[in-house]
């Protein structure tokens, strides 16, 4: 009897806060070792097809990393795993020293500080450019907070700043659906900026862009790096050469080679599967 009561105690204790009522504050990121992302021994398969096969990848804090690889090399799946969309069959994924990504879902991962830009530009087409940035802005994203949210002048300044950076000041009040393809891409990068993430994943940012647009994008990405760690998946070799310090080559779901652009271009295996192909 007493034992039962004893065990009930925490439930009725007045200062007990139930698990589901606790605010979701992810532990602050621990970057002691200077490495922001650890992917170790990750494998995932769909219907017997191994999309990722024993993948090991480390991203340093503040680094701008390019990932290349032929179609089906597992680039997008890798991003899905990091952002919580797909759960791997085996392996571990850590954000910094202390955040286990496999235990979190998408919003939690986003709140922990990982932002993602999709292959296809996915902006909210029925919202204005300004509203898109407002939605992306870092801050309390709980229900009641958003219900009563009012933009402070500081926040308005931040949005204005981002609009300036992505060059869409004049389009601020236009619905995002009416923007051109390139403008949508920039808006999405702008949204990443507003999110203020520690790590940014960018999937094919220059696909379908003109050369001028590409240059502008490269500039934007350089702006991002340093303050944020950036991982870019891209096909366009010229573009990669223009931004990258370090390149990782994926092939059949695992890392084939890693190094600076010149090393990679001279790597015999890489030439076989990809460049020389």
């Amino acid at each position: 009897m007493m034992a039962t009561l004893e065990s009930m105690h925490p439930v009725f204790s007045r200062n007990e806060v139930f698990e589901f009522l606790k605010p979701e504050v992810p532990p602050s990121l621990d970057l002691d070792r200077g490495v922001i992302l650890y992917l170790e021994g990750i494998s995932v398969s769909f219907d017997g097809f191994k999309a990722i096969n024993d993948l090991n990848l480390y991203i340093d804090d503040g680094e701008l990393r390019c990932i290349i690889g032929p179609n089906g090399a597992g680039k997008t799946t890798m991003m899905d795993i990091i952002t919580g969309k797909t759960t791997p069959d085996t392996g571990s994924a850590w954000f910094g020293q202390n955040i286990n990504l496999l235990k979190l879902d998408e919003p939690e991962i986003a709140a922990a500080g990982i932002g993602r830009k999709f292959q296809k530009p996915t902006v909210f087409e029925n919202h204005t450019t300004y509203e898109n940035l407002e939605l992306a802005m870092a801050g309390n994203k709980g229900i009641m907070a958003t219900l009563g949210a009012k933009l402070s002048s500081e926040q308005q300044d931040r949005i204005a700043e981002a609009l300036m950076l992505i060059g869409l000041v004049e389009q601020a009040k236009i619905q995002a659906g009416a923007l051109s393809h390139g403008q949508k891409q920039w808006l999405e990068i702008g949204m990443l900026l507003m999110q203020n993430p520690k790590l940014v994943l960018i999937d094919e940012p220059v696909a379908g862009m003109t050369h001028q647009e590409m240059d502008r994008t490269a500039e934007l990405l350089h702006n991002l790096a340093g303050e944020h760690s950036v991982v870019v998946v891209e096909h366009d070799m010229d573009f990669i050469r223009s931004i990258a310090q370090k390149v990782t080559v994926l092939h059949q779901g695992s890392v084939l080679a890693e190094g600076n652009m010149d090393d990679i271009q001279n790597n015999q295996k890489v030439i076989e599967v990809y460049l020389g192909g």
Binding site: T83, K85, D105, E106, P107, A110, A111, G115, R116, F118, T122, V123, F124, E125, N126, H127, L135, A136, A138, K141, G142, I143, T146, M191, Q195
Partner: peptide, 17 residues
């Protein structure tokens, strides 16, 4: 409305859809 139009994108922005 963002959820209505692009549900998964909203998740990646950190909202609890």
């Amino acid at each position: 409305t963002a959820i209505r139009d692009q549900e998964s994108r909203v998740r990646f922005l950190g909202y609890r859809v």
